[in-house]
Nucleic acid binder design. Structure first.
Lengths: 113, 113
DNA sequence: TTGACATGTGACCTATTGGTCACCTATCGT
DNA sequence: ACGATAGGTGACCAATAGGTCACATGTCAA
């Protein structure tokens, strides 16, 4: 069951969105400076405005980016919620057991005289 | 600088590998039961052996799966290291500030009389 | 040794994706 | 009102990815 999901296209959309290096670069750009406009982001990436627009659309549909319009410009903000959900519900599943296995090993070693 | 990398194709390969639902299913299958063979995994997924092979190859090149040969069979094991690296170096960057922002807010609220 | 079994390779096709462009709408400043 | 600026749409193309198949190699078990 899903309690609340800002992820329109589901988990799959988030993973797919993160799969492209350009989109990760855009997230990095927004992480460095939030609320940037399309034309500002366009300069950060070797691509025409239209390519950037498509990537931003993918990020937005995945819920990784939220937007607000101010006059004729569109401001883009990073939304960490989906990536946090991915982490909590999926990444931790694989990463944690390994970490705890290490911890157990450590404990075991320390407990052995 | 990279200290040690089991990720052959780099971070990008890992993200790309995780982007496909079939490959995530395969990881789930290996998470449920480690060391499965190709034909065993084939039954878990609506696809021919060859499709599964390609997906496993992608997972292996991303370092998410490691293999061992036993006679004529090839055993597949889940490797949590790359996903852990992704988490530590990338996911946490976006997820953590948000979490700490919440924590700060909480602290602030509690400190206000 | 012979047949069944487990996996591997390369060609092949189709659907999807990344990227560009011509053209269009809306808003700003003067 | 005007040109300049910010963003949007749909068509289009090339590259890649997902999937299947014919065929081929290595390994087990009787």
């Amino acid at each position: 069951m899903t309690y609340w999901s800002p992820i329109v296209g589901g988990v799959d959309a988030v993973f797919k969105a993160l799969a492209d290096p350009t989109r990760r670069d855009l997230l990095d750009a927004l992480f460095a400076e939030d609320g940037q406009t399309l034309t500002a982001l366009e300069e950060r990436v070797p691509m025409t405005r239209f390519g950037v627009m498509k990537h931003l659309k993918a990020l937005e549909e995945a819920g990784l980016v939220v937007t607000r319009k101010r006059g004729r410009e569109k401001l883009h903000f990073l939304n960490p919620v989906p990536i946090r959900l991915i982490h909590d519900r999926w990444v931790s599943k694989y990463a944690e057991p390994w970490a705890s296995a290490l911890t157990e090993l450590k404990t075991q070693l320390e407990d052995t005289p």
